[in-house]
Design a protein around this nucleic acid. Structure first.
Lengths: 241, 241
DNA sequence: GCTAGTTCCTGTCAAACTGACAAAAATCTA
DNA sequence: TAGATTTTTGTCAGTTTGACAGGAACTAGC
């Protein structure tokens, strides 16, 4: 018998990334095809284990972001939003996963069929409604991540992260409509974002659109916290929960 | 040479609990005195490692809550709010800690000087301002937990969790004032909470107070999401961030 | 060039909400 | 019975919201 009475159990630590973007005015999430068991061939969130014993968790998230998603890391917001560690969620052992939320502007179409697994942006609806089978508990993680994004849109300037460096007010409205899954009155939306101080600032030239009156361009303003917040219509807020 | 190229590093998983309550109209946090190294003798959050390999993280949080804090577990809300896993935060090795926020109603004074370490409720201000030395990165964790509570007070009915089963509107206002660290107009507060549907409901008898007009009693209503939200005055919101 | 179609932007108006404050109601104390 | 204290009900002006009308700026088709 040893002198040492009890040692705490150890776990494997992973990070999973919920990366959201807008494509054709609909919310999409980045998924990759798993190359190894378990769930080989299934779609899953980008992510993976800590690389070495001394790697910081946030650093691991950034590393996976560039490794698996090949995205411009610097430009992306990256926020921890949950931990998933239920015993049995991974057949390999006790795996605890830290989930991060990232928002990406619309990027140029990835060349279809590159060497990377041909998975890519998938409609968030198809994932959340269960049309698509996902590895592990990743559907649950995506649901939580999307809900977090919905809430953040109300109180923060996160919506601008979905847009490029400059954007029109209609672009911004598309973000709100896609993430919240509702439609908003353009006139009232225009007034609201304009008078929310520090949300967006004019960006010089006003040009765009193949048809209709050209829209003014804006860029993200200095404030990250919206005062007053954007209010989500009653039905929309009660869909979840 | 083995066939196995690489194995992911393992970590020790812990939970830490930020348990908040109100005492004498001020926000307090529950701290315990560490009985073992490292930081033996220092104040720290209640918490600890997973007990065995198959223990669920949330279950561990509940276990620690009853073990270390001796609180009526059932009545408490318990919400995960962050993960702290910076390498080097614990000299024993790579420890990753999942932080939970719990809100407790004002409890009967614990008999001073029981067998449990005489630590107990400490003023949140004294912790956050650095008057009190804490083990590990626990001050940081408390700061994040308090900030989470501040935000949740705006949009959820969390404030009622600080109160007993029945309470007066003034009791509720005390919660907001203590957590937000500001003072509010009683007339406007009264009107606001009354017309926020489902927040609080009348609870029969109306009695209380040694002096002044007796206040009506209420109990927590059915809604957990406040529509419209309680709005925190501008200065208060901008203190943080 | 003119008209129709489209999109963006500026107004308007009533209803609801907010912040500041007055004053009445219900109790205890002196 | 006269404060003192605390809760509750109002009031009032300024702001915000939601719903909707209509003008402005541009493209496409004739």
């Amino acid at each position: 018998m040893t002198d040492d009475p009890w040692v705490p159990p150890v776990v494997l630590l992973a990070v999973d990334l919920v990366i959201l973007t807008l494509r054709e005015s609909r919310l999409h999430v980045l998924l990759v095809e798993r190359g190894i068991d378990p769930y080989k061939g299934s779609l899953a969130l980008p992510g993976g284990f800590l690389q070495h014993d001394g790697e910081d968790i946030t650093a691991a998230a950034h590393r996976e972001l560039s490794e698996e998603a090949d995205l411009d890391v610097e430009a992306l917001s990256l926020e921890q939003f949950g931990v998933y560690g239920e015993p049995g969620r991974d057949p390999r052992g006790r795996v605890v996963s830290v989930a991060y939320l990232a928002i990406a502007p619309r990027l140029p179409e990835p060349s279809a069929g590159t060497d990377a697994a041909d998975a890519g942006w998938q409609s968030a609806d198809s994932v959340l409604l269960g049309d698509l089978e996902l590895a592990f508990d990743h559907r649950r993680i995506i649901a939580d991540g999307v809900e977090r994004a919905r809430v953040k849109l109300e109180h923060s300037a996160l919506a601008t992260a979905f847009c490029g460096p400059t954007f029109t007010i209609t672009d911004l409205q598309d973000v709100y409509e896609a993430v919240w899954g509702i439609s908003l009155d353009p006139r009232n939306f225009y007034r609201k974002v304009q008078k929310t101080e520090g949300f967006i600032v004019p960006a010089g030239t006003a040009r765009k659109a193949a048809t209709g009156r050209p829209a003014r361009l804006f860029r993200s303003g200095p404030c990250t916290v919206l005062r007053p917040p954007m209010t989500r219509p009653a039905e929309a807020a009660s869909v979840k929960e």
